[in-house]
Computed example of a mutant assay.
Amino acid sequence: MHDPHSGIHSEAGGLPGEHPGRMRNPVIKVRDLAWLEFEKPDLRAAERFAHAFGFTTATRTPDELQLRGTDPGAPCVLVRTGTRSRFLGPTFHAADTADLVRLADATGTRVRPLPESLGGTCVELADPSGLPVRVVADTHVLDALPGQHALPNNVGGELRRVNATQRPPRAPALVQRLGHVVLQSTRFRRTLDWHLENLGLIVSDFLYFDGQRHRGPTMAFIRCDQGSVPSDHHTLAMTLGPANRYVHSAFQVADLDAIAAGGEYLLGEGYRRSWGIGRHVQGSQIFDYWRDPDGFLVEHFSDGDLFDNTLEPGWAPMTASGLAQWGPPATKDFLGIARGRESITEVRSMFHSLREDNEWDLDRLRGLMKVAAT
């Protein structure tokens, strides 16, 4: 039996000659994930779910919905009207405009202005999997909103609450900020290296298919390099798979009570939990996953790891049981193998990709099938 508590980050590092998890001289170093962009046919349904999930509407027009958290900054999700539901790509914050000029020069692009509703400027790129990637600077900063605070807990001998009760409201868990996005690529290694080289991201943890470590990693949890300033364990995670697609995105909330009470509110509104509540291994976050009306997977999380740039990547085998330290087993819905349109599309992609020029082959297919069984 696989022990999900073994091989946690610092207990297993890289071997000589394995991927170092960072580039020596990246073009720039982005400082954070700015926002995610989607296209959806029904903005009203998207906004209803967003409010139940804990977002606040920053801007609403007939053609676009900008959603934000309570922290100051740019909106963290942009939704545009479209004929079908699709993920349009991630946007990262550069440190300043000078970095945008440097990135544009290195990639043969140019710095463009953003719409007035967002402000600032951007460089528009595409990674090796074909996904549009934006890098922005000097965007408008929205003021902070009243937030949801973590409840005071009596832990062990530390008394923080006396003559007072706990009564967390069964209400939306207020989103504080965008934490990370997870993407799947048929060209995992090339796409990983592109992000490390151009955006200066660094790897916190690598996962590999059991018995295939010699072929290199198949998943990477990647953080921003802010030097001695701690950064989220992963701002971007990437995994090898048979199709280039969005996997999920994650949004920070106050604490476990916010996650649990907010989950009860979502259930009461008729929305569907995908997997949770539990605590991850890589990143350590307390998590809860939900499906929005368009089928996109979104996560509430709290209490994630923060690393500075001194930590080297951890290495561990990829298994379904190793996704959480505690909580219910990973569901078929979360793993993408539940019966339905998504699983059918993924199965078709598995065999179609075997005929394409990419990193997906029969050994990788066997490795991925083994993941769900261990």
Rank of each mutant, 00 (worst) to 15 (best):
A260D: 07
L43T: 10
N358H: 04
G200P: 04
G156K: 05
A243T: 13
T59G: 08
P90H: 10
R215M: 03
A12M: 12
R44A: 14
P169N: 07
I28K: 04
T57S: 08
Y208R: 03
I8T: 09
G21E: 12
P90Q: 11
R68L: 07
C224P: 02
E18S: 12
R273K: 14
R86L: 12
S321M: 00
W194I: 11
G21L: 13
E158M: 04
P4Q: 14
V141N: 09
H195W: 10
P317N: 07
H9S: 11
V182K: 01
S204A: 15
R110Q: 10
P242H: 08
Y208H: 15
P16A: 15
V175L: 10
D105V: 03
F38W: 10
A316V: 13
F55Q: 05
A372G: 01
R177V: 03
P75N: 03
G367R: 04
L335I: 09
R215W: 01
P41G: 06
A173F: 04
R273F: 02
G263H: 01
E64V: 07
R44T: 13
M318E: 06
P20K: 13
D357A: 11
A316D: 09
L159P: 00
A173N: 08
P113T: 08
I202E: 12
F251H: 13
L114I: 01
E116D: 14
D96C: 11
M23W: 06
T239N: 08
S117W: 02
M23D: 11
A98H: 08
A320W: 03
Q66W: 15
D303H: 14
Q166W: 14
N25L: 10
R44G: 06
G17H: 09
R134D: 05
V79P: 01
H149I: 14
A220E: 02
L256A: 14
